[in-house]
Design a protein around this nucleic acid. Structure first.
Lengths: 239, 239
DNA sequence: CGCTGGATTGACTCGGATCAAGTCGAGTGG
DNA sequence: CCACTCGACTTGATCCGAGTCAATCCAGCG
């Protein structure tokens, strides 16, 4: 069975057996990383591209006053920016939230991969545009949605992304994200996140318990969120 | 005198005379666009890449309930995503805020440019990573900064970006952005934006009047904002 | 078995939204 | 050249969603 990275890219372009073989080779030797470990820190000089094979991570920034803002969730299959190596230094940090397995792909290998496998390159570029669309959707949530809508919107997104790579079984999937992280992601306090989760639970929409999310009523959740999945770019462009 | 696009890219990589000539050729024939005109709309199928030569534009999304969120300001020299053409449809709209001049670069021309001018390609990729860093800084502002800090932070960013392409004269530059747009950008109401601008004015930090911004005291403004310019990636990577 | 980090709930406060009433200024047409 | 208009800006009064503070509970784990 292909790993999450390959499953994800397959959703963005039709990969040949050869493409899949090259990707399998590039991600053959993941390393283990303990939970709450920084994969890279703000100010570091970027190294190779890395890919989450297993487990979750967050991108985050820390402000002078010590507060933290999470700007993205990386689930299995997600990777950092393709051209990260061109930067002099990182403008944010990335840390695992659980024990994880991560692959690194060196600059040279990545170039070879992109040059020899146009379908793979295409899929990766679409993945990157999707990440950018996700950032814009995030800003939209922060600026113009109420706290309930905001939480519901994020949960909708994570649910769909997890489903797209086959992580959801009977409306449930692993979501190793504490309420504290959620608060730092949505610009709220842990206390208020807790109340909102209770509200969504009582509405019969979803249930987040330690380490996993169950979406009892996807339609209701999407309606509460005002969710439009267009920014996830699952629709293919006919060439 | 080189146009804003070339001035901006020169800040990200050392372009040769040949590189500049190719860019000049590619952006030789801008077209005029009236103010408040959509350059592209959410749901549209993307066309060629386009570049702002003169004038300002905003990226924005509109929610089901009619409210609007601005997710980026495009100033002269800025462009849309390089790989926009791979998407089946746009996930946001882009509109001018003033009369502007805009260039389009067709897919084939763009490919030629990127293949034959690695320095240009490098500069464009760094520009794109900077745009992404800007989105993350934006999220951080929305989530974890007070309204005064938020406004100050945005003004700092715009001031620096404008200065980097030579638009600032004696701490002043054209900023054709209404308080309403500002409100939609920062997730606030126009009323509150107005009060915050007054506060920053009385603090002697800056003055925003119809169409232009004067930063009387850049240090003070940066201090209020808790501004760190690292995400604008002006520092070059020694190869 | 106690320690620690996360989850939960209640009481109180406050930043920014909302509502409402102007004012100002750039066009536009008579 | 002046009156009219419309969009943007300004200011005050009031309200409410979410933050803050403070206990308490709970589960996993060394």
């Amino acid at each position: 069975m292909a790993n999450a990275f390959i499953r994800k890219l397959s959703g963005f372009a039709e990969l040949s057996g050869d493409d899949v073989a090259a990707l399998t080779k590039a991600t053959a030797f993941p390393r283990r990383v303990a939970k709450k470990t920084d994969l890279i820190r703000e100010g570091d000089r970027p190294g190779p591209v890395f890919v989450m094979i297993d487990g979750w991570a967050i991108r985050y920034k820390v402000l002078p006053n010590g507060s933290r803002q999470v700007t993205a969730f990386l689930m299995p299959g997600d990777c950092c920016d393709l051209h990260i190596g061109m930067l002099a230094e990182m403008d944010h940090s990335i840390a695992t939230t659980v024990d994880a397995r991560v692959c690194t792909i060196g600059r040279a290998d990545m170039d070879t991969l992109l040059d020899n496998h146009p379908k793979v390159a295409r899929a990766m570029y679409i993945a990157q545009l999707t990440d950018e669309g996700t950032l814009r959707a995030w800003i939209t949530s922060m600026g113009r949605r109420s706290s309930v809508e905001r939480v519901a919107h994020l949960m909708c997104e994570l649910y769909l992304r997890a489903r797209n790579i086959g992580l959801v079984t009977s409306r449930e999937f692993d979501l190793p994200i504490s309420q504290i992280i959620l608060a730092d992601a949505l610009g709220m306090t842990p206390v208020h996140i807790n109340r909102v989760l209770k509200e969504l639970r009582l509405a019969g929409a979803m249930l987040l318990k330690r380490g996993s999310l169950t979406v009892h009523d996807p339609e209701k959740l999407a309606e509460i969120a005002g969710f439009d999945e267009n920014y996830l770019h699952r629709k293919m462009r006919e060439l």
